[in-house]
Nucleic acid binder design. Structure first.
Length: 573
DNA sequence: GGCACCGCTGCCGTTTTTTCAGGAAAAAA
């Protein structure tokens, strides 16, 4: 039995335990063990033979026993016993967001339906509303949930942070290949698209076969899907695919540009080449005389088209080709421009570290300041601070500031914007804070005009500094609220408020398109991590790249200002 | 069920509000 088969069994056990309402920690233990086996380097059978199963993290006596049984007999008594109790297909139903375990079981027992398709049919034929404890609204909710889920199933993209981690692991192995001259990541990951499908890699070598073999034999490689003289495609042990394309050193720049895309950007470049009498295609670049031209570097390729170099973040056909022709590309914000983080959490609410830890980590990053913005009282799940605790925190921050040189901790709050648009803290508290970051965390399904009015109310509050994650989207998991972003940007401009570009990799909110709108409208943004621990301060690069995709420049990003200039700005508006 | 750290145990995410239905599930960071 192979690693992924063992992992699959452990996962199935965890699903069945969950369906049966088993203790959460036992479910989690099987799930964790499954992931551990799945991402294991080396063969699980070897571990077994060497008696080292328990060396694998998350595997102890009990799960070790299940694995041993699997490897010896190819089956698991536990799994089979569980399957007798509950059909495994039912788990697919509770994986649909919006349908829980008890509802699924209730419907299953009342109607004998098991699969998602059967649940949908039962809802459509109005059989669910007749079950005691459910009604027409519950029935509609189930139907809507299934239809939303169906759409999301085709979605195989993952958040950029995962793709980045897999890519860097690949490059970690791959860069040491013999004969490798150059290598770079291309594709949507290089453009910093928030959700990434697969990883494209371009390499230059004089010995393609050697490098292709090396790629296919990386420890991270699980399946070789395709292998040719100058290309290969693999599935990694993290289930993400990676594609390699090999060229000569002289062709590296052009290939990198062609494989970076986007399609729409390349199509603009092709038009431009044609207009100049050249020809650009997926195969290469041919000048007016029909000769193939080589470009070892990308910038030479752009120059040949009469263009300024276009940073990968901008290659989405949003006007960048015209701007590059006119020499009016924006001077994009960089990570090095950032002087502080204006939205971080500490252990006072739901963060992992102390105020001092966060401040020290921020200073170590070269920042001048940080704003502690723990949650406000209404957000119970995040251990929001009561007014009294917030007052205590302010005292603590004053005390810490007295000990710090060349670094400032700002007193802040991530204050909830209540469903009616009021803020979760009274004016006399708000006015004692340096930074007030307002967020919508609850009632995310309000109607467009209601939620828009709610956010506009907050923007009209004189104490609010920054509107955090303005649409509250979670990539791949939660749709944005119905807020009218154009009116939000308009109101931010009128009231001199700052809009956040939340750098949390599954938020990235404002989105790149919204950043562009904010830039066009002349609104300031603040790129903040929303870090809940010191490691997450590094999320800043995701935020900066997202802002770059929206054409953000340094002068329009609040937290590129020095401490003095920032205070002056806040004071003035 | 795993694990860390001692003594056979306790910790591992938690708490309140909303929603649909009349108690219970889901959602929020």
């Amino acid at each position: 039995m192979k690693n992924d088969e063992v992992a699959a069994v452990l996962y199935d056990i965890s699903r069945l335990l969950e369906l049966e309402g088993e203790e959460a920690y036992r479910i989690r233990a099987y799930r964790k063990a499954s992931q551990s086996v799945e991402s294991l380097e080396g063969d699980i059978d070897e571990y077994y033979k060497e008696g080292r199963l328990r060396d694998i993290p998350g595997i102890g006596t009990s799960i070790g026993g299940v694995i041993e049984e699997l490897l010896r007999t190819g089956r698991s008594n536990l799994l089979e016993a569980l399957k007798k109790e509950t059909p495994l297909e039912l788990y697919e139903v509770i994986e649909v967001p919006g349908i829980g375990r008890k509802t699924a079981l209730k419907v299953h027992r009342a109607l004998g339906v098991t699969t998602i398709g059967e649940f949908r049919d039962a809802a459509r034929s109005h059989r669910i509303r007749r079950i005691k404890g459910l009604g027409d609204k519950a029935e509609k909710k189930i139907l809507d949930a299934i239809e939303r889920h169906r759409k999301s199933l085709g979605e195989t993209r993952v958040p950029i942070i995962r793709a980045t981690a897999v890519a860097s692991e690949i490059l970690g192995y791959f860069k040491d290949c013999e004969g490798l001259l150059r290598v770079d990541v291309a594709g949507s990951l290089r453009r910093h698209v928030p959700m990434v499908g697969d990883i494209d890699i371009v390499a230059a070598t004089d010995d393609p076969q050697e490098v292709v073999d090396c790629f296919c034999n990386m420890p991270i490689t699980r399946i070789v899907k395709d292998k040719g003289e100058h290309h290969a495609e693999i599935t990694t042990r993290y289930r993400m695919d990676a594609k390699l394309r090999i060229v000569s050193r002289e062709d590296f720049g052009l290939r990198l540009a062609l494989d970076t895309g986007s399609k729409a950007h390349l199509s603009e470049l092709e038009k431009r080449a044609a207009a100049r009498g050249d020809r650009l295609s997926r195969e290469g670049f041919y000048n007016a005389g029909g000769e193939k031209v080589k470009f070892p570097e990308e910038d030479g390729f752009y120059r040949a088209l009469g263009l300024e170099y276009v940073p990968p973040d901008l290659r989405e056909n949003r006007g960048e080709v015209d701007a590059a022709a006119k020499g009016t590309l924006p001077d994009l914000i960089t990570v090095e421009d950032m002087r502080g983080d204006l939205h971080v959490h500490t252990e006072w609410s739901d963060g992992a570290n102390s105020i001092q830890d966060m401040a020290m980590a921020a200073r170590a990053k070269g920042y001048e300041y940080i704003a502690i913005c723990d949650h406000s009282k209404s957000l119970h799940v995040a251990n929001g601070l009561s007014i009294e605790r917030l007052r205590d925190q302010m005292v603590e921050i004053d005390r810490l500031n007295d000990t710090l040189e060349n670094f400032t901790i700002f007193k802040g709050s991530e204050v909830d914007i209540m469903p009616d648009g009021s803020l979760d803290l009274p004016d006399d508290v708000l006015e004692d804070l340096d930074i007030v970051v307002g967020s919508v965390h609850t009632q995310l399904r309000q109607d467009p005009d209601v939620v828009t009015r709610r956010v506009l109310n907050a923007l009209e509050n004189e104490h609010l500094t920054i509107l955090a994650h303005p649409t509250s989207r979670i990539l791949g998991r939660r749709e944005p609220t119905a807020v009218d972003i154009d009116r939000v940007i308009e109101a931010a401009k009128e009231n001199r408020k700052v809009l956040e570009v939340n750098a949390y990799p599954d938020r990235l909110d404002l989105s790149d398109e919204h950043v562009k709108k904010a830039m066009d409208a002349g609104v300031m943004v603040s790129i903040d991590t929303d870090a809940h621990g010191i490691a997450e301060l590094d999320y800043i690069s995701f935020g900066v790249h997202n802002a770059r995709r929206g054409w953000a420049t340094k002068s329009r990003v609040l937290n590129t200002l020095s401490t003095g200039a920032l205070l002056e700005y806040i004071d003035r508006y």
